[in-house]
Design a protein around this nucleic acid. Structure first.
Length: 581
RNA sequence: GCGCCCGUAGCUCAGCUGGAUAGAGUACUUGGCUACGAACCAAGGGGUCGGGAGUUCGAAUCUCUCCGGGCGCGCCA
């Protein structure tokens, strides 16, 4: 790639020709940037090395730029260098090197945009990890699309990625699920009598039907249980759990198992339909219990105790997290001896590190941001660097339809499911819009927009660009046997109209790189929009098939790069490019 | 009260590891099909980048402060 080529020469100049202090050179090298220009009027490649050096050495940047220019100008790769603005060096490539982009990218094909910068480092991405207590809703969809996309992007950058779903199958949520299903199994009261603390969604009724269990309790016994419940919903649900467990423990555990199985199956199906695949499904229950001496959860806690980071207070076991910037210490084991969710999570994260990942990425709903510090504290407490963990927060998505915001309530069971969304607008549009904004910002998801067929709908606009290229290729093929193998009129500079398209396409690997470094798939979205815009504009202005044979070949080859970039770019977002629409 | 995120054109948003005139879409006013997909393209007006201060040759971008909005602060998960 030309940028690294020039960086090498610039560093060469700094080291051997400039006569600057070694420490200054080091600073300059750290700070300066070489980039592809946003516009051909600024040449092909630009660097601010003169400006950076000027500020560090307190000298006139333009003079420094001139020196560097005279060093570089003799390179055969360079046609011209302009010193512009306050001291930028704008490099105009020799035509044949500029045209190289075409051969290079087309040769790489599907690999164009990929790199080995990740160097095979092992990264684990944990995402979705929704409680297996009901179907995935549109909020989970955003995390799913995001986690999957950064997985693909990191993979394309040479990382070894493992995608994992953590299943909270051990906590109280599952008990609540079980109670809810059991109540529906004993279908002897109406909806209004259904306890507030249970899950009311229709899917609970479905599970109860599928269970087909023998009922051991009489309707009277059930009625007795649900009358005179405490008014506090927490106490209510706890009481229900105790009652059901006590009255029929076999039915309880069977129902629990079956409910989990059914819910998990539907979650897996939804994700599969959404084209999100996981390498690992990690059960919280596999961490074991506190009663087992050498379970993962026990040994994690023992280690923290040994290091005197966990201490007893008021009958509970607390973890010191203050040192890591958390505002207070956190409970690991409750007064009544049960472990908290946090304790499981500590053990889980310890096990993640133990599995040898170089980097852990957690994709969490932004409502969990208060949780980050304590997990970091626990990792440090266990002797790991907190830098190993990166938590990417994902904000909620608000759905809009007909200009109105769709209200969602998980409690009452009336929510827009991911399945519904996919049915409504399709997988590709859904993934695209989830990814069209930075993850940690609120997203207004307009269902009508995602279905519309005009340029306001970006996914449509981008796909249209791809389809147009496919279409012109087949027109070309109807008169020619194969797609062109060369682009002579671009090479000799007699046809320049495609330059901007080629130039823009050449930015793609850099965009992918930045998307990986910053974990921001939306950079790809906006880049593709700009590229598509350029394509449409070109297409509109140039009657391609009326051009000379040489020009046609050059154009078709240039468009093929654009097509390749759109296809590869969408692919990184988990979307398939269309040849027809 | 403390913590995190956000505030850019009327509206929806890019741009934020500091860089060359702040960009799209939409809306509004216009123009372009006897051309390969007009599902498109082009032109025009529209901005104290929430306010203020600081760092810098240079700030939408970094720091501080204030204002406004969202979220989180459990021996819940």
């Amino acid at each position: 790639m030309m940028i690294t080529f020039f960086d090498k020469h610039i560093c060469n100049y700094l080291d051997n020709e400039s006569g600057y202090d070694e420490s200054d050179i080091k600073l300059i090298k750290e700070k300066y940037k070489t980039e592809i220009t946003d516009d051909l009027s600024k040449g092909h490649i630009t660097t601010n090395v003169g400006l950076v050096a000027g500020s560090i050495l307190e000298e006139n940047p333009k003079n420094l730029a001139k020196n560097i220019k005279s060093y570089l100008i003799s390179l055969s790769e360079i046609d011209n260098i302009e010193i512009a603005g306050p001291g930028f060096l704008n490099i105009f490539l020799d035509r044949s090197y500029f045209a190289n982009v075409i051969d290079d990218s087309l040769k790489l094909g599907r690999d164009f945009g990929s790199s080995q910068n990740g160097n095979g480092k092992k990264i684990q991405i944990e995402f979705v990890s929704a409680n297996p207590t009901g179907p995935l809703h549109v909020g989970h969809g955003r995390g799913a699309a995001f986690g999957d996309a950064i997985g693909k992007i990191l993979q394309a950058n040479g990382y070894l990625v493992s995608k994992e779903y953590y299943i909270n199958d051990a906590g109280r949520q599952i008990d609540i699920l079980t109670v809810s299903v059991l109540l529906r199994l004993y279908d002897c009261f109406n909806d209004k009598e259904f306890p507030d603390s249970g899950y009311k969604g229709k899917y609970i009724i479905e599970i109860a039907k599928e269970l087909n269990s023998e009922k051991k309790l009489s309707n009277e016994e059930i009625k007795e249980i649900i009358t005179n419940l405490p008014s506090d919903s927490e106490e209510e649900i706890d009481l229900l759990i105790r009652e059901f467990k006590a009255k029929d423990s076999i039915l309880w555990s069977r129902t629990k198992q079956e409910s989990l199985k059914v819910v998990l199956k539907s979650i897996k199906e939804d994700l599969k339909d959404f084209k999100v695949e996981f390498d690992e499904w990690y059960f919280e229950s596999s961490l074991g219990t506190l009663q087992e001496k050498d379970s993962k959860i026990s040994s994690a806690i023992q280690e923290l105790q040994k290091k005197e980071l966990a201490y007893k207070k008021n009958g509970a076991l607390w973890l010191k997290t203050n040192h890591a910037g958390d505002d207070k210490d956190r409970v690991l084991i409750r007064e009544d001896g049960r472990a908290t969710y946090f304790a499981s999570d500590v053990a889980y994260h310890k096990h993640k590190v133990d599995r040898g990942f170089d980097k852990l990425i957690n994709v969490w709903g932004s409502d969990h941001h208060g949780y980050i510090k304590r997990i970091e504290a626990s990792l440090e407490g266990l002797g790991f660097s907190k830098e190993k963990l990166f938590v990417q927060l994902v904000q909620f998505a608000n759905l809009f339809q007909g200009g109105k915001r769709l209200k969602m309530s998980t409690r009452s069971g009336s929510f827009y499911t991911l399945k519904d969304l996919i049915k409504e607008i399709g997988v590709d549009a859904a993934r695209f819009y989830y990814l069209s904004k930075q993850a940690d910002q609120h997203l207004d998801f307009d269902i009508d927009l995602a279905k519309s067929e005009n340029k306001e709908n970006l996914i449509f606009y981008i796909q249209y660009a791809h389809a147009r290229i496919s279409s012109i290729q087949s027109k070309y093929l109807s008169k020619n046997k194969i797609l062109p193998k060369n682009h002579l009129s671009i090479l000799d500079g007699s046809y320049l109209a495609c330059d901007q398209l080629i130039h823009e396409s050449s930015k793609f690997p850099g965009v992918v790189q930045r998307a990986a470094d910053t974990l921001q798939p939306h950079l790809i979205v906006f880049y593709l929009r700009d590229l598509a815009q350029m394509l449409h504009s070109f297409y509109n202005d140039h009657p391609i098939l009326k051009e000379s044979k040489e020009n046609q070949a050059s154009i078709i080859r240039s468009l093929s790069i654009v097509q390749l970039v759109i296809s590869n770019g969408l692919n990184l977002l988990g979307i398939k490019a269309l040849d027809k629409m």
